[in-house]
Design a protein around this nucleic acid. Sequence first.
DNA 1: AATTAGCACTCAAGACCACGGAGTGCCAGG
DNA 2: CCTGGCACTCCGTGGTCTTGAGTGCTAATT
Lengths: 337, 337
Amino acid sequence: MLDDRKLAVLRAIVEDYVSTKEPVGSKALADRHTLGVSPATIRNEMVALEEEGYITQPHTSAGRIPTDKGYRLFVDRLSTVKPLSAAERRAIETFLGGAVDLDEIVTRTVRLLAQLTRQVAIVQYPSLTRSAVQHVELVPLGPQRVMMVLITDTGRVEQRVIDHLDWVDDDSVENLRTLLNRLLVGKWLTDVPPAVADVPSLVPADERRMAASVLSVLLESLVESREEKIVLAGTANLAAMDFSASLREVLEALEENVVLIRLLGEAGDPSSLTVRIGEENSHEGLRSTSIVSAGYGIGDHSLAKLGVVGPTRMDYPGTMGAVRAVARYVGTILAGQ
Amino acid sequence: MLDDRKLAVLRAIVEDYVSTKEPVGSKALADRHTLGVSPATIRNEMVALEEEGYITQPHTSAGRIPTDKGYRLFVDRLSTVKPLSAAERRAIETFLGGAVDLDEIVTRTVRLLAQLTRQVAIVQYPSLTRSAVQHVELVPLGPQRVMMVLITDTGRVEQRVIDHLDWVDDDSVENLRTLLNRLLVGKWLTDVPPAVADVPSLVPADERRMAASVLSVLLESLVESREEKIVLAGTANLAAMDFSASLREVLEALEENVVLIRLLGEAGDPSSLTVRIGEENSHEGLRSTSIVSAGYGIGDHSLAKLGVVGPTRMDYPGTMGAVRAVARYVGTILAGQ
DNA sequence: AATTAGCACTCAAGACCACGGAGTGCCAGG
DNA sequence: CCTGGCACTCCGTGGTCTTGAGTGCTAATT
């Protein structure tokens, strides 16, 4: 159905269209690539490709542009991830190396990715649920208030204030604190709920009300967590792209963190690169964009995702290379902390 | 120099131009406003206004549009801040009322402001330096690590991990913690440095190294603080505005938090509304925008600023009303926490 | 049987032009 | 001092033409 030459033509069309932003015709193809055949032959191949739905023409008597299906084939079978240049690698290292805490790592990462790809970069904060408890702290703040601080091994700190307690007595807080740490330190956050299940039976009767309040806040902070938190950068690059959809729609979609989270979540295998092209994106406003994403984390333990949003007409090999490299490097940084 | 009628004409021009987005001519003015004079007279006034630099024409046979100077006069002398409608007030209350912590207050505020004004909203996080210490906590995390948590009365929590200490012994940490709390609780953050000046002389000799490390981190966290932290929303609204400058420039400027901080800082009196129009903005990319900002805080104690960025051709009375109302309401919310 | 040259055809984009209309400036008369 | 009248300017719109890149088809070539 699709012989090698057709594939070569499709690849050439994608590459030319991505770099020129103009529909590409048979003549131009024959000139710019050494396909060894004449424009007329290329035209015949184009007809076949168009019948199969890989390319289309904006109007009669114009060149061809790839369809989403065409890009999909290109990404799956016709392209290889392009490694970054040595200079780019160095840039990543120096730029990310200076980061001191999690916030800074994330901020720098997202900017870096935006700059490398000249597109919109998104980075999801490492999710709580995939990290482990390093320490739980309880601090009495007053007669009826206690602050709970949960520290994870990914450097994340969640804190909540628990208010309107019946009464707080320093000793019982201290007891609960040591108990919780004994039970939880080193546990995955996902394992916390079962681990604390029998806490009520382990504390004196008169401390149970307080313990229950603290536990419920603790569990709540696990669920809500900030898995939803997302940072983005490079929206200025949107101005240079011309979408078929309106710029407004894209900006609106990008502002809806919920949408981005969902999209990242939909992306498959967290350990490798995922590319979602045009209509494959479930969100309306992003139907004319592609999203390249990857999971990142410590070792092969994926904590969250990061990626890039750009026009379907994007440099896939280059973008994929950048996303993969940044994801890996962030992983090593996190591990080193 | 500028009699009442000229001012009336200028006001009419600004109002019409803001609502129609088209240069406004003498005929249209006479029709839409009851100025009591003929178009010819209005034309004469326009010539005067143009000579004074308040209005200009894009090209010879077009209507007039206000200059930055014209908007400035309009804001200073020809307009009054427009109070929000009852419905809008209710919307603010219900929308902001549900917020539980500082993060959520800020996030909701910025979205609300963007929605009310249909422009880009920016909110600066309440600065640390203007709040007071509620509690200092020190938590030993291991043989050489201590975590410091600083809680302020504005609900902000700063935490740092202090690493590579010589040695940590639970008792000395406990001592330092009670000492610090005794010295600092209730103090303005700005008064913290003098208050801790003689801590070294108050701790046993063998704890001084550790105390010094903790103190330096504490002080550092005050200076850096997150005074720089800014949140924005409503960038999608940019798509509908047409700037003389390129959209890209504006987006770039908005992404540079440093720039925004500086601009907000330049705005004068924190207790009232500030309007910076077009060229008055020091940043290149925002020369075709106006910024309406106000301080917000508890009582008349301004903690940070918030505001709106839009085209110079904006509805100043309405925008100013929204900014003022939101700033005030956030203040009451913060006070109630 | 596949490839290519040749050719007629299509259509978007640009150039050109005409014109309608909104707006101006100026002058003379109220 | 205001206003009606008038000639003038110039932008924007819409029509027509031309150009050129690109196509599809057919017949000739390898």
